[in-house]
Amino acid sequence: MSVFIWLNDQLLKMVWLSNLVESFLILVGIDIETRFGASLNFFIYDVIKIFILLSVLIYTISYIQSYFPPERTRQILGKHKGIVARLFAALLGTVTPFCSCSSIPLFIGFTNAGLPIGVTFSFLISSPLVDLASVILLASIFNWTVALAYVVVGILLAVIGGTLISWLKMEKYVEGFVYDNPMVTLETEEMTRKDRMAFAKEQVIFIVNKVWIYVLIGVGIGAAIHNYIPESWISAVLGIDKWYSVPLATLVGVPMYADIFGTLPIASALVDKGVGLGTALAFMMAVTTLSLPSIILLKNVVKTKLLILFVAYCTFGIMLIGFMFNILMG
C-alpha cells in the first residue's frame, strides 16, 4: 500500500515538483511565507503540474481513443437497444474522441443511422463531462474516491438523461433535415501503430494549444482565491452551510465556456477554503457539460422544446449531484 501511496504522491500529486519549485523560489530570494510568494509558488507548481499531466494523459488517452472513432461507436451502439444502448453510449462517450466543433456532425451522423435520440443524448452528455483525462486530474488534485464518484454520477446523469428524452418521445423535436440526409458510410481506414502515435501527438498539440489559456486563467484565479480572498467572504457565499451555494455555483458555471483543466484548479482552491465538495463539483460539471456556445450549436439541429429540456435536465441534475455530495461528504 505504501508503494502505491508513494507512486500516487510522486506521479500524480508531484510532490517532487512542489519541493523543486519551493527550493527554486527560496534560491532566487522569494519568501514563500508571504502572500505573494505563496501565490507565486502555487501558480508555478500548478501550471507545470497540469501541463505535464495534460501532455502525458492526452497522449496515452488519444492512443486508446484511436481505437474508438465515432464510426465504430455508431456501429456498436446500433447493435443494442433501450437502456443497454444508453449505458453503452455513456461509456463509449468517455473514450470516443470528442471536439465541440464535431458535436453537430456527430449528432446528425448518429441520428441518421437510426440510433434513437435518447442514445445520442446519453453520448452527448457523457462525452464532454466524463473525460478520461479529467478523471485522472481529479485524482491528482483531490483523490481517487472523488474521481471514481465523479465518473459514476457522470455516467448516471448521461444514462438517465437519455432515458428521459426517450420516454418523452422527443424525436419530433429534432429538425427535419437531420433525418433527410442520404446515409453515407465512409470506409474508415485501418490505422497502423505509427498512425495512432501520430494521431496521439497531434491531439496533444491541438488540445494544449486550445486549453493553455484556460489553464493559466484557472490557476491564476485559484492562486488568488488561495491567498488573497478571505475565507470568510467565500464561506459567506459558497459555504457548505448555505443551501443556495450549489444552485449558485451551477448557474454561474452553465453559460461559461472553459475547459475542465482550467476549472479544476479553481474548484480545488474553493474546496481548500471550506466550500463543499458538492458545490465545487457542481461548478465543474456545469462548466464542462453546458456552455453558451455549445447550446447555440445544438440549436441548429433540435427545436426549442428539446433544447430547453436538455439544458434544464442537465442543470437540475448537476444541482442534485452537488447537494448529494455535500450531504454525503459534509
Partner: peptide, 13 residues
Amino acid sequence: DFKEIASYGIMRT
C-alpha cells in the same frame, strides 16, 4: 453549413 457537411456523411471535421 452543418446541413451540407452532414450530407457528405462525415461525423468528424
